[in-house]
Structure formats: C-alpha cells, structure tokens
Nucleic acid binder design. Structure first.
Lengths: 132, 132
DNA sequence: CTTGACCTTGTAGTTGCTACAAGGTGCATA
DNA sequence: TATGCACCTTGTAGCAACTACAAGGTCAAG
C-alpha cells in the first residue's frame, strides 16, 4: 500500500509517517519505480504499535525501547514491565499535579463575587506568590 | 535590582525573563549605563503574576489576557472568571484522559505474568489497534 | 591585573509533530 | 491527446515555552 492508505488505516497523517521514518522509528519503506513509498503489512503492524504506545502516553524514547524489546521474543518481559510501570508513575504524578491545580482554581472561582476587577480575589490571588 | 536578583526572587531563569520581555509579556526594563537591565518592584509584581498564572496551567495567550484584564480595575471581573472557568474545564479534561490511560496501563501491567516477551500480553496489547 | 560572578546579544535545540511550497506521477474523463 | 485531480516527493519552517549555549562586555574583590 502507499503512504496515504497506510495513513488512513492507522489514523496517522502521511507527514507523520515520513517523520517516523526520518527519525528511525519506522523502517524505511520500499520504493516503486516512481519513487513512491510502498508499505507491507509489517509496516502496518509496526505503525499500529507505535501509535498505540503514543496514545498511551509513551514518549518517543520509550517507544524506541518498546520496539527494541518487542523484537526479542525470547527474553523475559520484565523490561517491558518496568517501562509500563514508569509510565504509570508519571501519569500518577501528572494526575496529582492537575488535581491540586483544579482545587486551587476552584477555590479562586468560589472566592469571586462578580465584583470590580480592582477587588477581584482571583487577580489578587494571582498576585500573591505561592505558599503552601 | 538586576536580572539575576529578580530571577532568584521569582524562581525564574534569567533567560526566561529576557524571553518574556522579547515576547511582550513583561515591559522592557530600564538600562544602566553599562546596558544591564534594571528592575523595579513593579516588574517583580508583574513577573510574580505571570509565573503564578503559568504555574496554574494558563498558557501564554491566557496570561496576556489576564495581564490586560488586571489593568482595568474598574471593570467587572466576569472575564477573569470566564478564563479561570475555561482553564478548569481543560484541566478536568486532562484529568479524565489521564485517568483512562492509567486504567489501561494498570490492566496491561496486571495481565503480565513475567513471561517471555513472545507471550507478553503487554506487547500483544500494544499490537492491537485500540477498540473501546 | 587577574579572577570570577555577573551581564549582554544572538542562535539553535528541545518534543512530536504539522503546514506549507514547488514540483513529479497516475489515472479517469472530455 | 489533453487536462484535471488526487496523490506522491523533497525540503523547510512553524508551533509552545522555554533552555542552552557561544562569544564577549562589566564590575568588585584580592
């Protein structure tokens, strides 16, 4: 298949696929006589894997590692586990951060009584350096 | 004060302060005879405001709006409210997304029995296109 | 008079794409 | 045959919000 078809099949833009190739995330495609990229089902599988990992929040570096690991069928998968666990930890950290933010913004909003900006507690809060 | 002191006072790198000036987020500082930037307490207050807003997850565009709004003491603060509410909405969306991710990664991890990569459910899951 | 901390400008790198621009290819239709 | 259109190619630049350097100027202390 050509790049457009692969793009449609995976919900990826053609430009992104070329980008992955440049970055070495995907192996280079064969070329037709007219220099078009020609993809196999292996490429489809690889790209699906990459996109899925990206959707799950893995960065490019981790995707590279996962790809490398997935090539070694006979090794134990503890390294895969570790990557997933690290990713889980980061997501937990992000959720915790966002939850704090949410709390603080909620309080700001509740403190506002629709007054003049000069009296606005929100602006006032923004002007205070954070403590606690 | 000079840029280094302002940087220490606000927990911002000097380079970031210069960047804010370039971007028009902060007013340009006065210059000493030797062309060093010289900051006033007004600058300190402005930078504190900006950093606080950034910490709360506001983007540069929103920070610009908040700065503009905070200049108009006599207007009602409903626009400030709206910005905060939008920000709250976005944070909620991010938390929801991350919570789904977390769930999915957790399941992957629980499905793994420390086997060979060839049998690893995690790699297998990554290879499946997402459905539901 | 030299060391070292500080400041200046300008440029390029980060992440993960995305958006052009300028041109070549392939196929259906008038 | 011509022409139109969708598709492909490469290369370059842009996004957010900084961060990291390089090459050089300034200033106080020892």
């Amino acid at each position: 298949m050509r790049i457009g078809e692969l793009a449609r099949a995976t919900g990826t833009k053609a430009e992104t696929i070329r980008y992955y190739e440049r970055e070495g995330i995907l192996p280079a495609a064969d070329r037709t006589d007219s220099n078009y990229r020609e993809y196999s089902d292996d490429h489809l599988a690889a790209l699906t894997f990459v996109r899925r990992a990206r959707e799950l929040g893995f960065g490019m570096a981790q995707v590279r590692q996962l790809l490398a690991l997935s090539d070694h069928d006979d090794k134990p998968c503890e390294n895969v586990d570790r990557l997933v666990q690290e990713q889980l930890g980061e997501i937990d950290r992000k959720i915790a951060d966002l939850t704090l933010l949410r709390e603080e913004l909620g309080q700001m909003l509740r403190s506002c009584l629709g007054e003049r900006i000069g009296d606005c507690r929100i602006i006032e809060t923004l002007n205070r350096a954070r403590r606690g």
